[in-house]
Amino acid sequence: MKKILAILESTKLDNRVRLGIMSVLVVNDWVEFKRLKETLELSDGNLASHLKVLEREKYIEIKKQFVGRKPQTTYQVTALGRTAFENHLNALEALIKRKDG
């Protein structure tokens, strides 16, 4: 039990917003900031601060470019981020099994 909780904590995904961001990024290539914001229904500031954490963990890659005159920021999950996400899901599933059993 302790081991499972330790995994959940170590992935830094033990947070609804960060887990939500990762859920969207693992099934989509290069997602725009605006689309993340709309899908997750978050404020700019809230989303940005959690994205920063994920960036620091090297779970996501960031690409900034200009589309016409507008700056556009897009995000993609890294291999490390994908592994962390999978570990987190496995730990959650293990936790459910323990509760049921």
């Binding site: 033990d14 887990l19 099934v27």
Partner: peptide, 23 residues
């Protein structure tokens, strides 16, 4: 934190987000 309150609820939420954001 929040997500620990109920793991199966969290998993459902993840599944729904993955589906809603890609299809």
């Amino acid at each position: 934190m929040e997500s620990r309150k109920n793991p199966s609820e969290t998993l459902d939420e993840i599944r729904s987000l993955m589906e809603r954001s890609s299809r």
